[in-house]
Amino acid sequence: MKNENLVQYIYGIADNALILGQRLSELCGHGPSLETDIAGTNMALDLLGQTRSYYQYVASLVGEGKTEDDIAFLRTERQYKNVLLVEQPNRHFGYVIARQFLFDVFHLLLLQELQRSEDETLAAIAKKGIKEVSYHRRFSSDWIKRLGDGTEESHQKVQEAINDLWRFTDELFHMTENDMIVADEGVGIDVKQLREDYYRIVKEVLEEATLTVPEIKYFQKGGKQGIHGEHMGYLLSDLQYMQRTYPNMKW
């Protein structure tokens, strides 16, 4: 395994945190109540904090004077390796919660494995992240239940979001060639192994929330290879705006 394999592998994990953190931060100041606004921002801060730890590690692996910001802001769209799920827009609060929930369940399972990685730095980042993400999962699961088993309108809205986002869940368990190389070294995780637990947990919560588990045959993937949806470019325009407009400056 080369350094570049490890770097690419970390992108596959860290970019999820960055992009979801970016999506959540769009909502700051626009939530359904002050309390939920504050909660959402906390999750964004957790995710961006994790992002920084990963990118600082990548920067140290790459050398050449690269910084966390070069990595966060100065890649091309194809070089971001986040899954499609996390880049989906905040259509309404039901989507925000459904996206969060579908990701949190996976995220926690992933970090629980990653803390046993042969790579000590990754293991340490995962260990710290587990506490944060456990709370995220609790928060989003609770809200799935509130919306699912709340009013007719909320039930329908969150069901719509779950149905719509379900097609992006399969990608979470997709192993790229690079993922396999890194997993063989005991550094990366074989995410295929997480699939069963994932769907079991998700189904339990959805059922408790009186929601229907979608049954579809066709799934979307591509994010892990850097092939994103059309929303991604706009998200990156915001994210990269300053660094692209005013290159090579200190902020």
Partner: peptide, 10 residues
């Protein structure tokens, strides 16, 4: 439950 979560966050 929400009150606890909100209290933690706030």
């Amino acid at each position: 439950e929400m009150a606890l979560e909100n209290a933690r966050d706030v």
